[in-house]
Computed example of a mutant assay.
Amino acid sequence: MAFDVAAEAYGRFMGRYSEPLGPVFAEWAGVHRGDRVLDVGCGPGALTAELVARVGVGHVAAVDPSAPFVESVRARFPGLEVHRAPAEQLPFDDGGFDRTLAQLVVHFMQDPVTGIGEMARVTRRGGLVAACTWDLGGHRSPLDPMWDAVRRMDPLVSDESHLAGAREGHLAELATAAGLLDVETTELSVTVTHPDFDEWWEPYTLGVGPAGDYVASLDPRGREVLREECRSGFPADEPFEVTAVAWAVRGRA
């Protein structure tokens, strides 16, 4: 799935969670100076920024299928090698990277086993491949306050809990099927403080991802009903925290 939305919209919607997740994920993947690192499905650059900070722009490459995201990352990180391509067709030679990472991307790969296999192909023998995905299946993702409200209104709704890597153990299954060795898994979490309900809700109206598509599919009355149902789950007009949990997997190429 390509996110053909403005990078700024994605940043307001998911960047508030993916940006603090980046350092946690990069640390677990063991990224350190001297590594040549690839960011697969880089989006507007939440993880890319952390990788550049750790190893320098000349040691990082990035790829994403979304043209707006590629343009944004190119402008944000002058000199960075960036390509527009899906995970399943990485435009790199075999074994060119020490570590290849995919943050919040496996959910949207057309063929996750092929995508992770491509990540392994472009990683040197013995190098590390890592991916993380929100725990949508366990209802611990940053999107679940919204989807919980939708399910209260429509228990039969098709939400994001069926996506690849969304349930416990599925990332490891995909990584093993893709041929990774010494596969390990863990949970990663971040906690984000929202100043008020409106700041939390407004990005859902920007049409980003499946959640944004769902909100956009509602008529004005339906959106207002959903908004109020979401509001009932949070404190009124005061700051609150959302803790988001991601599954993570790593293995050797």
Score class of each variant (00 low, 15 high):
157 V>G: 11
157 V>A: 13
157 V>H: 08
159 D>S: 13
159 D>K: 08
159 D>W: 08
159 D>R: 12
161 S>R: 11
162 H>T: 11
162 H>C: 01
162 H>V: 11
163 L>S: 02
163 L>Y: 03
166 A>W: 05
167 R>C: 03
168 E>K: 15
168 E>R: 15
168 E>C: 04
169 G>H: 06
169 G>E: 06
170 H>C: 03
171 L>V: 09
174 L>I: 15
175 A>M: 09
175 A>F: 00
177 A>P: 07
178 A>W: 06
178 A>R: 04
178 A>N: 03
179 G>T: 02
180 L>A: 09
181 L>R: 15
181 L>A: 14
182 D>W: 10
182 D>I: 02
185 T>D: 08
185 T>R: 10
185 T>W: 01
186 T>H: 13
187 E>C: 14
187 E>W: 13
188 L>F: 13
189 S>Y: 06
189 S>F: 13
189 S>R: 14
190 V>D: 04
191 T>F: 11
192 V>Y: 01
192 V>S: 07
192 V>T: 12
194 H>F: 14
194 H>K: 01
194 H>R: 03
196 D>N: 15
196 D>A: 14
197 F>P: 08
200 W>F: 15
202 E>Y: 08
203 P>L: 00
203 P>D: 01
204 Y>A: 08
205 T>D: 01
207 G>C: 07
208 V>W: 06
209 G>D: 00
210 P>M: 03
211 A>T: 02
211 A>Y: 00
213 D>V: 06
213 D>A: 15
214 Y>V: 04
214 Y>P: 00
216 A>K: 04
216 A>E: 07
217 S>C: 12
218 L>Q: 11
219 D>T: 13
219 D>P: 10
222 G>I: 12
223 R>H: 06
225 V>F: 03
225 V>I: 12
